[in-house]
């Protein structure tokens, strides 16, 4: 009996977590669903076109289940989702799940490379800014960050393309590959960088790198701006603490004080910041995807939304929701590793 109680007690946080996940998702879906139904766009028209005779219109409307009351439609949708069926996309004539499998890897690949760039440059420059607070390195980082925040990605992307692709020819143009390479790597993960390595085709790998470098630098610049600002303020807080003075007094090298002691303590909040910025790149890179003709999730959801392709929008929302939840859990997990107190 005691054992049973112990197990139940152990399980409680997980059950609570599961329940809260369930409620989160249900709420997310409900809001997206009902917003989708009140926007003044007729999804039937998106399928049959404006020339459709009324009987075709009516038949399609019925086939799409739009003649039923809203709440019933929602119920049916949830029922299907629980059975792993995200429905059919109106715009692509395919199951939403299949579409998502196609577009998510493209976004994932781009966001991952971008985040790596953002972290590699953002964290050290944030640290430098904090260490030299008020002096020129700080101002430099601030200016770079400000540009990152305020220049529209659309413009920056186009200028980047014009210069590095159009004039200098250093990088590939819009798209994930030169167009006629399309379909030449067998799809395993959907991420071309990895798939081409698996296939052992270095020319395609190099081509993919030349195409991803510019958009990922653009996106990386934005996360860099954010990450370096956050790193700076976390570090400033730490550097004023007594244990830092103690460490210095003990005669530790300045580098060790900054990069090991202070940065080590900043890691926990920093991981959350990086995770969130990563997640926002996954769904928030619509403009970059448009400029660089990158067939990703943001572009997919936006196109679906303006055409009232609600199954696709909801499917995309579920994925984005899962990514956010997943990254939150992941950063929780990292906390436990980085911060002994959380174990």
């Amino acid at each position: 009996m005691d054992l049973l109680f112990a197990i139940v007690r152990r399980m409680r946080p997980f059950v609570r977590l599961l329940l809260s996940l369930l409620v989160t998702f249900l709420g997310l879906l409900a809001i997206t669903f009902f917003i989708g139904r009140v926007i003044p766009v007729d999804p039937v028209l998106a399928v049959v076109g404006e020339r459709a005779p009324p009987e075709v219109y009516e038949a399609t409307r019925k086939a799409m289940g739009l003649d039923k009351p809203l709440i019933v439609q929602f119920g049916i949708y949830i029922w299907q989702v629980m059975h792993g069926d995200l429905g059919m996309s109106l715009l692509t004539s395919r199951p939403v799940l299949e579409d998502i499998r196609r577009v998510v890897p493209a976004t994932f690949e781009l966001a991952t490379v971008a985040t790596i760039i953002g972290v590699l440059i953002g964290v050290p420059s944030g640290v430098m800014a904090a260490v030299h607070a008020g002096r020129w390195p700080d101002h430099l980082v601030r200016i770079i960050g400000l540009i990152g925040y305020s220049v529209p990605v659309f413009w920056l992307g186009l200028m980047g393309l014009l210069l590095f692709y159009g004039k200098l020819g250093w990088v590939g143009g819009p798209g994930r590959l030169d167009i006629f390479y399309e379909g030449m790597v067998p799809q395993v993960t959907g991420m071309i960088l990895i798939d081409s390595l698996i296939a052992g085709d270095m020319s395609i790998f190099r081509n993919a790198v030349s195409h991803i470098i510019l958009p990922s630098l653009m996106l990386g610049y934005y996360s860099l701006a954010y990450i370096s600002r956050m790193t700076r303020s976390f570090m400033l807080e730490q550097l004023g603490q007594e244990y830092i003075t103690t460490a210095r007094v003990k005669g530790m090298s300045e580098a060790r004080v900054i990069w090991v002691h202070a940065l080590g303590n900043v890691m926990v909040p920093l991981i959350t910041v990086i995770a969130l910025s990563y997640a926002s790149l996954l769904e928030g890179s619509v403009l970059t995807e448009t400029v660089f003709a990158w067939p990703g999730l943001g572009f997919y959801i936006t196109t679906a939304l303006v055409s009232a392709d609600m199954s696709a929008v909801l499917g995309g929302t579920i994925v984005v929701g899962m990514v956010f939840v997943g990254l939150n859990l992941f950063s929780d997990f990292l906390y436990r590793i980085v911060d002994p107190r959380a174990r």
Binding site: L158, L161, L162, P174, G175, I179, V291, A293
Partner: peptide, 15 residues
């Protein structure tokens, strides 16, 4: 290939 932006189409053509 679907290229949304006219300026991107132009770049690709010129290159």
């Amino acid at each position: 290939r679907h290229i949304e932006e006219s300026s991107s189409q132009r770049l690709l053509l010129e290159k």
